[in-house]
Design a protein around this nucleic acid. Structure first.
Lengths: 230, 230
DNA sequence: GAATAAATGTGAGCAATATCACAATAATAC
DNA sequence: GTATTATTGTGATATTGCTCACATTTATTC
């Protein structure tokens, strides 16, 4: 069973689909990039993407991941005449529905329900990000990694009796980007987790066998599942 | 001259004031705290506050600071039945206007303009936070501190010909909370900045004499001023 | 399926930060 | 104004995490 992440109600997703134009992207290609004009909202129909920022010296931070039924590109959308602050790259082949800024605004104007859910959704993402920052900054690099694994399990996990398999194959490099760590450091910590049989990795798919061990070791409190996501 | 931070248009602030109930807080007191029910929006009328999270072992991270005409408490507000994820503490004596969730929703329903600006404002804060995360995670602790000083100058600075004075007296401890550093580390880096005469501190007020030096040393790109804030 | 590119693992050494333990100031309370 | 509390500074030391340099393995491309 896959736990659902917090998303818009499906009937609103449907209504967004109605006003969108389909578009496809190859694995590795950019949906949009940092510095270009923000004038569309992206509804992911299938596939997975990463939201990332880069620094002049080539370092990369991954702000978030998104999958089917997630919305991407809203941050700068309503700020007039503004540019995207991050880039979005396809991790797999991706199908999106493109929604023009104007069209979205009209739709928001027409549908109070959509506006409500939109505000709720932006608020939720905000809370998630804040809790993530806390974990990344206050729990050391090990804590940052464990927190990220737990969040990925919540967002992308297929939950079995004892194990969770993260159904988004991810590289060590991307885990480094998600945690603000060096690739080598992630590699070493993941090795340790494998040796202790807390996780196993198959074909890029991470399975967590003892997620509670990760949780207790970073003092997880009982955050709402809605917030403990990537 | 004080540069203005990105805020709602003043006529909308006025209309929010109309539907708010005034309340006062002493320096150091909590406007609301982590885990309590989120059912009000706070409009800061005067004074300054900090938004913070704490971990079980007593570490504290400061998510943001806010001053007159800023709104606080929106993150969890629209998420049904949910609790605040952070606490808000008064740094000075603070006057706020309390706006009930229901009242706000009615007002948003009535005023399209307010809704537009509200979405814009949430988007702006989101972009800010994302850029801040990048700086905090990717530029080392020195970079985190410099970035924070620059942002504070943009949000709270009185700009002279060459110098900026941050008109929010802040402790070393709070700077540590803003950057995810240890107090001692901040103390040492600030000492270095003082010795190089890049900053001076008077009575808790930091004046930055060579802000461009800070900017270049962390490879500041030309982010919109709107986003380069605390 | 050979060649090339990308991802991963690993050791050694180093630099940046955290930790600990106090001393010294500065601010606040009574 | 004295006592108390909060803030800041600082040295010594420990630890974490980064960097560099390759070897190895795994994907991709042609």
């Amino acid at each position: 069973m896959i736990r659902s992440t917090s998303q818009m109600p499906s009937y609103l997703i449907e209504s967004l689909k109605q006003i969108s134009t389909p578009k496809q992207y190859k694995k590795g290609s950019l949906l949009f990039s940092h510095g270009t004009k923000a004038d569309h909202l992206y509804l992911i129909l299938s596939g997975k993407v990463k939201l990332l920022m880069t620094t002049p010296d080539g370092k990369e931070i991954i702000l978030s991941l998104a999958q089917a039924n997630d919305l991407v590109g809203e941050s700068a959308l309503f700020v007039s005449q503004t540019m995207h602050t991050y880039s979005v790259q396809a991790l797999t082949r991706v199908q999106v529905g493109l929604i023009q800024k104007n069209t979205l605004e009209e739709e928001l104007y027409r549908s109070t329900k959509l506006t409500d859910e939109f505000l709720k959704w932006m608020g939720t993402r905000n809370c998630r990000m804040q809790l993530r920052i806390r974990d990344l900054l206050l729990k050391g690099k090990q804590g940052a990694l464990y927190s990220t694994l737990i969040r990925m399990a919540n967002s992308y996990g297929r939950w079995g009796e004892k194990d969770v398999t993260i159904e988004l194959p991810i590289t060590i490099k991307d885990l480094a980007g998600l945690t603000g760590m060096q690739r080598e450091s992630v590699s070493r910590l993941m090795k340790e987790l494998r040796e202790k049989e807390i996780i196993t990795i198959n074909d890029g798919y991470i399975t967590i066998h003892q997620i509670n061990l990760l949780r207790t070791s970073i003092d997880c409190e009982t955050c709402p599942l809605e917030y403990c996501q990537i």
